[in-house]
Design a protein around this nucleic acid. Structure first.
Length: 509
RNA sequence: GGUCCGUUCGUCUAGCCAGGUCAGGACGCCAGGUUUUCAUCCUGGUAACACGGGUUCAAAUCCCGUACGGACUACCA
């Protein structure tokens, strides 16, 4: 292993919103870089002009900003190895393609797409698969079979061409994957992949090797879907006589039920987001929900994602980015795909909600309160969230758990009324109203003592009284400690709610 | 079809590399406890080594095969 500086990259293609699988790949790169005092680079791989989607690049950057994943170098960030967008590096690639042609590792091919498609169909008709390889390339239109003069003529006449890698024959390619160990494949089953397209752009294969080399990338950590092209990449490094980085191929994220990898459809079908941020497709106008918009805390989202395929080797489950980076190692990334579990995602959010300070939580809750058009100062809201946060998974659920702190109930849950509004309730609540009206010290502790003493003296049922009381104050059988609630809303409001409730529910026959 | 990768409770996983533990934890679910309610919390329970061979005194762990799953197989990344 070389001891060069650790430099990793995340290299998305701006063809749409970033899938959470992509976010996880980026996260592992980030954690690996942080753990090893290395650099994390964002490179945009936009060599396919036909698949460009407006807004996708900004989306990617916004998504990482929201997640708290920071890059050391890259688009919008700069760095000494730029530019970091492949379309801006266009001029560079042809030279390298030609270098490989000159050294005999690649060749020009003049076959048109149509010709190749026809060939494929013809092979398929005979139940065979066409591969542009050592046995087939000798029958095709390329610089391996054409004379040098003919090739020059075509080239100067600007006939469209591609550059193909000349896959070596009878070679067993041995590769090491940091997660899977040694992988070997016979080069004869590989095809002569296109390195340089007829539109003047490199393919992913060429661009990624050239850029990774130029940007001094030490470790390539990417999705498992790239494993089949690893032999090509290894052979390319060899052809260039460059030191290859180390490779790690991450397993896929699987759908929660059934089979196969997680897709946007699964999210729609099962009701959970597949993207970090909401995304509206500029062409169809179709909107996909995002974790941010669904109310997830970025810390919880990242935490949940990190544990999907990696674990620290101990029982810890909740940690922040720094703690994760400290604990991270590529060896502890699993080999098999992870099924995404929306339930556990919610549990993570709940954990972060509990951990969060009331001050911060209140700040996030404020917009929801304003939407309800009730008056409340921030101190009051802070105390409220402190009392109810353990019963919610999301900030937006806080309102339904705490509305009675801000306004009197306008309805009384019919089921609760049926169950808890007894014959005796009207009279008991009338008594409790009189009792509480006389209390000077309206703290939770004191009212509790007063009320409970009264219940004992009268030999009333504790449950009968308190549930009816709760019903009048809250409007339902929910919420925190009842005496905390009345202390919060105050004596005046408590008495008013009792009065209203008595009037509304009346005496049960 | 071909190539490569994978397979431990319903789910995320520890244990595998350096064979010997009642296969451990978490989410979910179920039950009990706490609580005036709901939630939290606490206690307990449920439930897994894909299958078949082999090596070995001993296999989740090493080897081979089978099945199943996945990725790739574009002038896409």
């Amino acid at each position: 292993m070389s001891n060069r500086e650790i430099r990793v990259r995340f290299a998305p293609s701006p063809t749409g919103p970033l899938h959470i699988g992509g976010v996880r790949t980026a996260l592992y790169n980030y954690l690996f870089a942080k753990k090893n005092n290395g650099k994390f680079i964002l490179r945009i791989e936009d060599t396919d002009q036909t698949r460009f989607v407006a807004g996708a690049e900004d989306y990617i950057i916004d998504a990482f900003n929201w997640c708290g994943i920071q890059f050391d170098e890259g688009v919008t960030k700069g760095g000494e190895y730029g530019p970091y967008k492949q379309s801006e590096r266009k001029a560079l690639y042809r030279k390298y393609a030609e270098q490989l042609v000159a050294s005999g590792h690649a060749y020009y091919a003049f076959d048109t797409s149509e010709e190749l498609t026809n060939l494929r169909n013809a092979f398929e008709a005979e139940k065979k698969t066409f591969t542009y390889n050592a046995t087939e390339r000798v029958h095709l239109k390329n610089s391996l079979v054409l004379s040098e003069a003919e090739v020059q003529k075509l080239l100067t006449a600007n006939v469209p061409f591609v550059v193909r890698f000349k896959m070596p024959e009878n070679r067993v390619v041995r590769m090491v994957d940091l997660i899977r160990g040694e992988v070997t494949v016979h080069a004869n089953v590989l095809d002569d992949k296109i390195l340089f397209k007829s539109d003047g752009m490199p393919t992913y294969h060429l661009a990624n090797i050239v850029d990774d080399h130029l940007m001094k990338i030490s470790h390539v950590i990417r999705g498992e879907e790239w494993l089949p092209s690893l032999p090509l990449h290894v052979l390319l490094y060899e052809a260039f006589e460059w030191e290859a980085p180390q490779f790690a191929h991450l397993p896929l994220l699987l759908k929660p039920d059934g089979k196969g990898k997680l897709s946007k459809r699964d999210g729609d079908r099962l009701g959970f987001p597949v993207f970090p941020l909401q995304w509206t497709d500029p062409k169809t106008g179709e909107t996909s929900r995002g974790y941010r918009e669904d109310g997830y805390f970025p810390e919880a989202f990242i935490n949940m994602l990190a544990l999907l395929g990696w674990n620290p080797g101990d029982d810890r489950e909740i940690f922040n980015l720094d703690e994760m980076a400290e604990a991270f190692s590529i060896e502890r990334v699993g080999k098999s795909g992870s099924r995404f579990d929306p339930e556990k995602a919610k549990w993570f959010n709940h954990q972060y909600m509990l951990k969060m300070s009331n001050e911060e939580l209140a700040k996030q809750f404020l917009p929801f309160i304003e939407k309800e058009e009730v008056m409340a100062d921030i101190d009051y809201v802070e105390r409220v969230v402190g009392l109810v946060k353990e019963r919610a998974h999301f900030v937006h659920e806080l309102w339904s758990q705490s509305d009675f702190f801000f306004k009197a109930p306008d309805t009384y849950d019919p089921k609760a009324v049926k169950k808890r509004w007894k014959q005796v309730s009207y009279d008991q609540m009338t008594e409790i109203k009189a009792l509480l009206a006389k209390v000077d010290d309206f703290t939770s502790e004191n009212t509790e003592v007063v009320v409970k003493q009264w219940i004992e003296e009268k030999e009333y049922g504790m449950g009968v009284v308190l549930n009816a009381f709760r019903l009048l104050i809250v409007g339902a059988l929910k919420g925190p400690h009842l005496f905390d609630i009345i202390a919060m809303i105050g004596q005046e409001e408590t008495l008013r709610r009792l009065e209203t409730g008595l009037h509304e529910l009346g005496k049960k026959e």
